[in-house]
């Protein structure tokens, strides 16, 4: 009975996530295909004859009503066909397919480094709140969060590539032939991304934990004679788990924004770079497909955060 209620809640969140994704796809399609006006005219230029424009329009399917075009587009996307690039005529799926693993690798490496690091810093800062260490962490994280990602990245290049000459400023995935070169290629982008995400995650983790440390049951634990480690591990952390999982998921969603800048600055061959190039050349099928991938990833993270919050709530787990 109680499991059923919980399962229903989870199922509802999943359903809502799917609806959101559908609405997002509608928004992406509307912005890129319906609102800007006549693509055929634009492709052929002002000098084109009306017959030529009409012909292209028909061949692109632009003479059909908007909702039908949307359904066609969505259906095709569902079967793995994202159309052809307007710039070089290659299938969009192939273009993305060659880049996606690189981006995933970057994201995975960043997550692997940043999550444990951020949790350690966040938890210790909360434990020793008000101390010099805590104030230092707070100041640093506020600064990092409120400066642009490209400042962090350029500063990293300046320090590690220009002054210390430890790492190369540009990344080339094809030149990986060993662990050292792997590190050299990945270190800079991962470092820059980590900076931003760790700062974000530390702030949220610290806030979530401090929120719990203020609760009366923590005072009670102290008055039972519990030491600081027990207070944190047995009392505050179990209750902060939901908020912290939430913080991790939401911080990782900043990865999506950060990766756009970082891939560009380091000329890293991932899909964010691909998308930015697509936007510059106004390659709509490519932009649409990339936007859907990013939005889906974002929604997935938000959904994961929500589910963590639901599952870690004792009131929902044990009715």
């Amino acid at each position: 009975m109680k499991d059923f209620a919980l399962a229903r809640l989870v199922a509802m969140r999943l359903g809502l996530g799917l609806v959101s994704l559908l609405l997002v796809s509608l928004a992406v399609f509307a912005i890129t295909s319906l609102l800007p006006g006549d693509v055929a005219q634009e492709l052929l230029g002002q000098a084109a004859t009306p017959e030529a424009v009409a012909g292209l329009r028909a061949s692109l399917g632009l003479d059909q009503p908007g909702w039908l075009r949307y359904l066609h587009w969505l259906g095709a996307l569902f079967t793995g066909d994202a159309g052809k690039s307007l710039v070089n005529g290659q299938p969009v799926v192939a273009l993305i397919g060659s880049r996606l693993p690189n981006s995933l690798m970057l994201a995975a490496a960043t997550a692997l480094v940043s999550v444990p690091l951020a949790l350690c810093i966040g938890i210790t800062a909360a434990m020793w709140r008000g101390s010099f260490y805590d104030r230092l962490v707070s100041t640093l994280t506020v600064s990092v969060v409120s400066v642009p990602e490209f400042l962090v990245a350029t500063a990293a290049v300046l320090v590690f590539a220009v002054h210390l000459r430890w790492l190369s400023a540009l990344s080339s995935v094809s030149s990986i032939d060993g662990i050292v070169s792997f590190l050299r290629v990945f270190a800079m982008p991962v470092l820059s991304l980590c900076c931003v995400i760790v700062a974000q995650m530390v702030r949220m983790t610290r806030a979530a934990l401090i929120d719990q440390l203020r609760a009366p049951y923590v005072e009670m634990a102290i008055l039972k004679g519990a030491g600081p480690v027990r207070v944190i591990w047995s009392h505050a952390l179990p209750n902060a788990l939901g908020p912290i999982a939430n913080a991790i998921a939401l911080s990782l969603s900043y990865l999506l924004g950060g990766v756009i800048i970082v891939e560009t600055i380091f000329n890293y061959p991932g899909i964010a770079k691909l998308m930015v190039d697509g936007v510059s050349t106004r390659d709509m099928p490519l932009v649409q497909a990339c936007a859907m991938i990013f939005c889906a990833a974002y929604l997935f993270l938000v959904l994961a955060a929500d589910l963590c919050a639901i599952l870690s709530n004792p009131r929902l787990r044990h009715r």
Binding site: A215, P216, Y217, E219, M220, A221, L223, K224, S234, H235, P238, N239, S312, P314, R315
Partner: peptide
């Protein structure tokens, strides 16, 4: 020395 708090609802850890 042991302590009994004013609001037991808040002084019990909700997740244990």
């Amino acid at each position: 020395v042991a302590y009994v708090a004013q609001s037991a609802a808040a002084a019990f850890n909700p997740s244990r």
